[in-house]
Design a protein around this nucleic acid. Structure first.
Lengths: 107, 107
DNA sequence: TTTAAGATGGCAACTTTTGGAGATTTTTTA
DNA sequence: TAAAAAATCTCCAAAAGTTGCCATCTTAAA
């Protein structure tokens, strides 16, 4: 599974667009497309739906790539091993179970 | 695997301390211990090592619980399913491979 | 009902993140 | 080598998040 940036680059190239033209579609300056593709900046979340439509790709799939990148950044910030992602998944399941037991609404 | 907050509560109770006395050890007001245990606030990261020592628990383990909680929060913010954690793990491995290929230092 | 313990809401100061941009340099390719 | 494309550096202001603390409720137990 590639990063969000690598994914974006390959999709852009499939469309035969350079960073400049690609960026204009979403109102993003070329230098920022470069940063986004290299993982130095985030694609503006507000535009993610439009991106999914333009690329004709499932929004959920793109969102997962997008959010996963944020999670990886965060884990790296604290110099965690990849185990932390499994721990997070367990925690998430634990919380959901807890909520069900307490009769809370699923979110 | 419990959340950071639940873990903290159970460890505190093992020591037979109330939130007030427990908090004083780390210079945290009681009301904030309550919030931390209930996942409404973060334990100050700067104190995490001291916490690990006090509880005589491996720092890495506590850090993983701590960071995992942040990741869960983040995933929830974007209303992602738990799949996102697997995606993140894949991304992280992908990045590390990429860095190795480029001869970059491991981080 | 009094007291101790815990939970919740909000605030002010502070730090971080974010999105946008220009100037410059490096890489690619024709 | 020259032009196009991409990458990097630096900066800025606005927005968002973090932290510690106070005041206030709500439970739970005696």
């Amino acid at each position: 599974m590639a990063t969000f940036g690598d994914f974006l680059r390959s999709e852009r190239q499939k469309k035969g667009l350079n960073q400049s033209d690609f960026g204009q579609i979403f109102g993003i300056i070329m230098t920022d497309i470069s940063k986004i593709e290299n993982g130095h900046k985030r694609f503006p979340y507000a535009n993610l739906k439009k991106l999914a439509e333009f690329l004709e790709i499932d929004f959920i799939k793109i969102k997962n790539l997008f959010v996963a990148h944020i999670l990886v950044e965060e884990a790296h910030k604290y110099q965690c091993s990849d185990v932390v992602f499994s721990v997070a998944e367990s925690q998430s399941k634990y919380i959901k179970e807890k909520n069900v037991k307490q009769g809370k609404m699923n979110f």
